[in-house]
Amino acid sequence: MIRVALPVHLRTLARVNGDVTLDIEGAVTQRSVLDALEARYPMLRGTIRDHVTLKRRAFIRFFACEQDLSNESPDTPLPEAVAKGTEPYLIVGAMAGG
């Protein structure tokens, strides 16, 4: 089971509270996690990755185990702690409130 932490505006959009949990078969990579997330919550399509290119949008970043994975290959396996669900996969968005 994978835990995914979404920024608050995307939690609102997906109508979820707290972290999202996903079951993923096969390799746990950023691509497989995001594919599973968008399959479960279609309203998130285009908000995290570009609709067409599936590249990360410039106002979103990905982290896990304190490390910035934003520019890593989407097919690189995620850390074991994420794959086991002990650490969340963080999707962090720009916010501007003050």
Binding site: H9, T12, T47, R57, A58, F59, R61, G93, A94, M95, A96, G97, G98
Partner: peptide, 16 residues
């Protein structure tokens, strides 16, 4: 954050 979100995508505090 290399670029800001498109207007309207991330609400401001006044909005949200």
């Amino acid at each position: 954050f290399a670029e800001p979100p498109p207007p309207g995508m991330v609400p401001s505090c006044a909005e949200g």
